[in-house]
């Protein structure tokens, strides 16, 4: 009854340096990344941040799962860039790069498109590194230290736990449907299986709440923790370094009016055309595959 973990959100076990950094500095890093990513428009900073997250992923030995998690960027990124080329989010006049039948491709929005993509890319990449290298219980303990309410904390930990359980339950119900001669794959088979899964989920949650309550879940007294997150000097060093570097960059960006480099970085018409064909093609392929999968016979 072992459970594989098909969702690239959970911990990838390991014993690398990155795995051993406490959740505290990692959380600081993630929050810092998000703040810095949204206070700068400097694509060099943004993509360097993403590259650093990549280095962390390689260092932690989680690259494969990490890349799987990043796949979500494919539809988001491709549609984002395609839209910026078709309808730039900057003031007119726009510079046309090429005519493609009835549509005109513009150069002006592309820089901003890369900025948007870079923000999502960097934030997602560092968040994935943190999720995949941090034991949920350690995160739980750290949140508790930060005085996040116990129940809220527990809910978040439970959610990560329940995803694989429900995935397995859907699998069991699909097999049961198959064995009764119903369709066992595709979207139209998954849909009817939701009802038994949800009914099962309600039953499970009720049973769990009774079980938890009878182990003193609702107690109002001081709660202790089985796992202890040990603070190491390296954790403090990492936390301080990340705060200093990111704060400096954020302040520099804000002082330079978000440090937009669009004047210095220009894209050639051919680059825009090629990129558009690439991203539009990618996006349409993803959409086609998704639709084909949903209505698969």
């Amino acid at each position: 009854m072992s459970i594989s973990n098909p969702l690239p959100l959970a911990l990838v076990p390991g014993n690398s340096f990155i795995h051993n950094v406490s959740p505290g500095p990692k959380m600081i890093l993630v929050v810092g990344y998000v703040i810095l990513a949204f206070s700068t428009q400097n694509i060099i900073i943004l993509y360097s941040m993403a590259a650093i997250a990549f280095i962390f992923a390689i260092w932690a030995g989680i690259l494969r799962t990490f890349l799987k998690g990043l796949l979500i960027l494919l539809p988001i990124g491709s549609s984002l860039l395609a839209l910026q080329i078709l309808a730039p989010a900057v003031e007119k006049p726009w510079t046309a790069a090429a005519e493609l039948g009835p549509v005109t491709l513009y150069i002006d929005g592309l820089y901003y498109g890369f900025v948007l993509l870079g923000r999502i890319f960097a934030s997602l990449a560092i968040a994935l590194v943190m999720l995949m290298t941090t034991h949920p219980s350690d995160m739980f303990t750290t949140f508790t230290k930060l005085r996040v309410p116990y129940t809220l904390n527990f809910m978040q930990a439970m959610t990560l736990q329940l995803i694989p359980v429900f995935q397995r339950e859907v699998g069991i119900i699909l097999s049961a449907q198959k064995s009764r001669g119903m369709k066992g794959s595709g979207f139209s088979a998954v849909l009817p299986s939701f009802i038994p899964v949800f009914v099962g989920a309600i039953e499970r949650v009720q049973q769990l709440s009774i079980s938890l309550e009878s182990r003193g879940f609702g107690s109002t007294g001081h709660k202790t923790s089985y796992r202890k997150v040990k603070g190491k000097w390296s954790d403090t060093a990492i936390a301080v370094c990340s705060i200093v570097i990111m704060a400096t960059l954020a302040v520099m960006s804000i002082m330079r009016g978000s440090w937009n480099l669009s004047d210095q970085i220009t894209f050639s018409a051919n680059f825009v055309l090629g990129l558009f064909l690439l991203v539009a093609g990618t996006f349409l392929t993803i959409v086609t595959i998704t639709i084909a999968f949903m209505f698969r016979k």
Partner: peptide
Amino acid sequence: IVFDNPEFQMSQMSAAEEVALGLEHAGVPH
């Protein structure tokens, strides 16, 4: 109290934490 469906009573990442859960609630020192 222990019920008939043990899987529904599990909520933790490891067996040790599962056992420790009640102790955490009771405030037993680490």
